[in-house]
């Protein structure tokens, strides 16, 4: 039986000085064609301005922020001193760091979890063909497009124990209002409630789009096979919504970690609601104006966001069903 051998690499066996074959010439790397150059110019023309803007207004501040995190710099001062990694050491050894990270984690888990669970429930309701569903969808989505500052101010009055609606209702039934603003735990609960209320519509609309893209044949087949609503939801709908869930989870975590407006308006002192981003604000603008230390906290937050995003992309995406 004849042995099958791989053809010799002509490129390495051609004797020096020998004329290359036409096939060899075809394999030789050619320079960019006129069409390639034209495509490249079109790419530069279309993407170039955006890349410049991103470099100027996203990457430049990012790298500047990392640089500032190595400085002892007071806001407003024209001079600063380099302190290396001292700001990082101070943050990670500060007694406040654990509290800030815990608050950040609680706020993120509660707001993301609350928005997703309630958003999915609302989407399931809005996915039905009933009268007035169009208005209901608009009503659910509308808080998301409102200004966070305006929303915060309105809820400030609603929660006010003395002049607020909630306090008045509770007093009408002989109860007293919780101290939403003076008890740090309740303050965090209050802010979470408002954040979930504001962002519920966004999650619900995304889930609604996901629900409407589910092939009805699958649901009918499940019904024929005797699957009840619960089994259909957990075995058919939820797995098929996994790309949507993945997207919502990713964007909600990023948004929640960067939440600021409601925190600033509803609890300016930050007691109980002092997340990483709010602590960065307090350090730079409300306290000692320590820009360098604030930049350190911002850089820690940036690192956290990068890690979380990579973890989600690498680990969670494996569990996502696209078909």
């Amino acid at each position: 039986m004849a042995a099958v051998t791989a053809p010799a690499d002509t490129g390495t066996t051609t004797p020096a000085g020998a004329t290359a074959t036409p096939a060899g010439r075809r394999r030789r790397r050619r320079g960019p064609s006129a069409r390639d150059r034209r495509d490249y110019l079109v790419f530069i023309a279309l993407a170039g301005p955006n890349l410049v803007l991103i470099a100027l207004f996203t990457y430049r501040p990012l790298f500047e922020n990392i640089y500032y995190s190595t400085l002892n710099w007071t806001l407003g001062a024209t001079t600063a001193t380099s302190v290396g990694l001292a700001n990082y050491r101070e943050f990670f050894t500060s007694p406040d760091a654990a509290s800030i990270l815990t608050t950040t984690a609680v706020f993120t888990v509660a707001t993301v979890g609350g928005s997703m669970v309630l958003g999915l429930m609302v989407a399931l309701v809005l996915n039905r063909r009933v009268r007035g569903v169009g208005f209901a969808r608009a009503a659910v989505f509308s808080p998301f497009v409102l200004s966070g500052v305006g929303v915060g101010l309105v809820w400030l009055f609603i929660f006010d124990p003395v002049v607020g609606v909630i306090g008045a209702l509770l007093r009408a039934v002989g109860r007293t209002s919780p101290e939403w603003f003076n008890d740090p735990t309740l303050t965090l609960v209050m802010v979470i409630i408002v954040y979930v209320w504001k962002n519920l519509g966004y999650v619900a609309v995304i889930y609604l789009a996901g629900l409407q893209s589910i092939n009805k044949d699958l649901l009918e087949a499940a019904a024929i096979d005797g699957a009840g609503p619960r089994r259909t939801f957990f075995s058919i709908v939820l797995p098929l919504l996994s790309p949507t869930t993945f997207f919502v989870l990713l964007t909600s975590i990023l948004n929640s970690l960067q939440a600021f407006d409601l925190l600033r308006i509803m609890n300016p002192l930050g007691r109980g609601t002092n997340t990483l981003i709010y602590e960065a604000y307090l350090q730079a603008f409300a306290g000692s104006n320590r820009v360098g230390y604030s930049a350190t906290i911002s850089t820690v937050l940036f690192g956290l966001l990068v890690v979380l995003t990579i973890v989600q992309l690498v680990l969670l995406e494996r569990r996502v069903h696209y078909r």
Binding site: R60, E64, A77
Partner: peptide, 23 residues
């Protein structure tokens, strides 16, 4: 290259004087 460009941008930026000259 993108990273180096951004770093270069950062280096060209304003910010406080760290030379120790003082205001």
């Amino acid at each position: 290259g993108l990273g180096l460009s951004a770093a270069a941008l950062a280096a060209c930026s304003g910010g406080p004087d760290t030379s120790g000259a003082g205001a």
